[in-house]
């Protein structure tokens, strides 16, 4: 499998994400500068954490105008997996690939700490390796991670089982303790916590590994399916 890790000016978790992908799945991970216009070569796309454009104006608000975002949208429409972590999640909501918005933490401070997440949906390509209701330990590091959405959106998210993770102890005031959500098709996940920082024994948690493994397996199976049906890759 071939992964693209998008690098916006100010991204700073791009190397970490690429490291986790290579280490956990053995796949290729390429760092792709934000002026790329074609991502059709890749099987999965990761929008990493950081401070794209310094988080000026609003987190993710400027990055959404980068040329690469149009390419991300095209690949997402084709059903490719798109994972947005932290600032990547903010870019996804700003680009309307995911609903809702991420506002300043209710404690008005940057928060970096280990959090316990509850797996709310294990039917997605990102979460298949987790058990439903399982508590996993993944660290957060953000100042603007308070997820908000209007009541209709929230009701829809719940009805469609698109809340992937909730916080066991809410660190930022997110509505309904939401830590990560899926799009309607289930191929785009945005989450504030950093799974790429929980993939090695010495990182204090290895619970992030299974997210990359789930994605890897899903892509492999999807490719096998395409192969079995004899249809060419579009």
């Amino acid at each position: 499998m071939k992964w693209a890790v998008i690098v916006f000016p100010g991204s700073n978790c791009d190397e970490d994400a690429a490291f986790a992908i290579r280490e956990v799945t053995g796949d290729e991970a390429h760092l792709i500068w934000h002026d790329a216009r074609d991502l059709s070569d890749f099987d999965a796309i990761v929008l990493p954490g950081g401070f794209s454009y310094g988080d000026y104006l609003r987190s993710g608000a400027i990055a959404r105008f980068s040329p690469v975002v149009e390419a991300v949208k095209r690949e997402a429409q084709k059903g490719k997996l798109v994972l947005g972590i932290c600032n990547g999640f903010q870019v996804l909501t700003e680009s309307h690939l995911l609903p809702g918005a991420l506002l300043r933490n209710d404690n008005l401070q940057f928060r970096c700490e280990m959090t316990e997440l509850v797996v709310e949906n294990n039917q997605s390509p990102f979460t298949a390796d987790y058990a439903i209701g399982e508590r996993i330990r993944i660290p957060i590091a953000h100042g603007e991670g308070r997820f908000v959405a209007d009541d209709t959106t929230l009701a829809k998210l719940q009805a469609d089982r698109r809340v992937a993770f909730t916080y066991h102890a809410n660190p930022n005031g997110s509505v309904q303790n939401i830590a990560g959500i899926l799009n309607l098709q289930g191929n785009v996940l945005g989450l504030m916590p950093h799974p790429e920082r929980a993939v090695m024994e010495w990182m204090d948690s290895v619970d992030g590994r299974r997210m990359f493994l789930s994605m890897h397996r899903y892509m492999k199976e999807a490719r096998a399916l395409v192969g079995a049906n004899g249809s060419a890759n579009s």
Partner: peptide, 27 residues
């Protein structure tokens, strides 16, 4: 104090704040 600092970006912090010394892994 230190939860306001990103202590784990670069995914190389082996021992962070709270230990006698910090340990940062060499890739």
């Amino acid at each position: 104090v230190h939860r306001q600092y990103d202590t784990s970006v670069r995914a190389s912090t082996v021992l962070g704040p709270g230990h006698d010394a910090a340990l940062v892994k060499v890739p």
